[in-house]
């Protein structure tokens, strides 16, 4: 329940309001903050979508995505890696994608997030207003500052894949998974695997990454078994723990396998 609405002129002013108002929340697209779960929670909304960069900039070996970029723009951009487009299109439906922003998705920090598995796997760096850049994972552990952009390193030979499991096409990601690896050697170097839907927040699985690091892609069944042994989801209305474990393992195996195909 929003009881006060602020439209700051600058990000500095927004930061000041954020510190001043006890119940302040940054409002970007509003797809999360205006959902029914917040209806009874008093909050002061600080509107920042007009202040956040809306541009997508390709640099030599990296990509800078403004925090104000909307999901549909991300999906429509020619600069964006296919796997990230896929992740962006995984967000609900066009009405929501027309409104939801990159920054908002990061701030919401939901386990079903469309983008966070990708950002975690890609070891994205968040740029912040008036503060030093910070890695996506560190920010998740200790959120601070207003994120203005997301930087993705895209060196030669780096491959990404994203996939999700949902009950219907426009459903949220019950399991979202992104993987990344450098494939120059034909092996899985610098492998990163991140999943949402298996715990309260999106997270990487370093144990699984370590099992596979520097190796050729193992046979699918073996990979599935390795992945399944690393997951400990819970039973809930969206599926039993056993089902989620299996489904996540299949997703990981398929996505890592698709990296191999990218290499070929």
């Amino acid at each position: 329940m929003v009881h006060a609405y602020y439209r700051p002129e600058t990000l500095e002013e927004a930061q000041m309001l954020l510190e001043r108002e006890k119940d302040a929340r940054l409002l970007a697209g509003g797809s999360y903050l205006l959902s029914p779960q917040f209806r009874d929670i008093p909050m002061s909304a600080i509107a920042v979508s007009g202040l956040l960069p809306h541009s997508i900039e390709r640099r030599e070996e990296s990509l800078l995505i403004g925090a104000g970029v909307r999901f549909q723009d991300l999906a429509d951009s020619a600069l964006i890696p296919e796997a990230l487009k896929h992740a962006a299109l995984g967000m609900a439906n066009r009405n929501v994608r027309n409104r939801a922003t990159v920054g908002g998705n990061i701030g919401a920090d939901r386990s079903c997030s469309s983008l966070l598995p990708f950002f975690f796997a890609a070891e994205a760096v968040y740029h912040r207003a008036g503060l030093n850049p910070i890695s996506a994972e560190l920010w998740r552990e200790k959120p601070s500052g207003i994120i203005t952009a997301v930087e993705l390193a895209l060196p030669e030979g780096r491959a990404f894949a994203y996939g999700k499991y949902s009950r219907s096409a426009c459903d949220l990601a019950l399991i979202g998974c992104a993987v990344r690896a450098d494939l120059g050697s034909g092996r899985l170097d610098n492998l990163r695997i991140a999943l949402g839907g298996l715990s309260a927040h999106v997270k990487r699985f370093p144990g699984l990454e370590a099992l596979l690091e520097g190796k050729a892609v193992p046979p699918r069944a073996e990979l599935e078994a390795m992945a399944a042994s690393c997951f400990s989801p819970i039973d809930d209305l969206r599926g039993s723990a056993a089902f989620k474990r299996r489904r996540a393992a299949v997703l990981v195996a398929d996505l890592v396998g698709s990296l191999k195909e990218q290499c070929a």
């Binding site: 609405y5 409002l27 205006l34 909304a45 509107a47 009405n95 929501v96 409104r99």
Partner: peptide, 20 residues
């Protein structure tokens, strides 16, 4: 749904002041 600057959005998910 309405078109907000030409884009289809859910008006229930937008604060009225955001339409300024």
């Amino acid at each position: 749904a309405v078109l907000l600057d030409g884009r289809l959005v859910n008006s229930c998910m937008i604060l009225a002041p955001e339409a300024e």
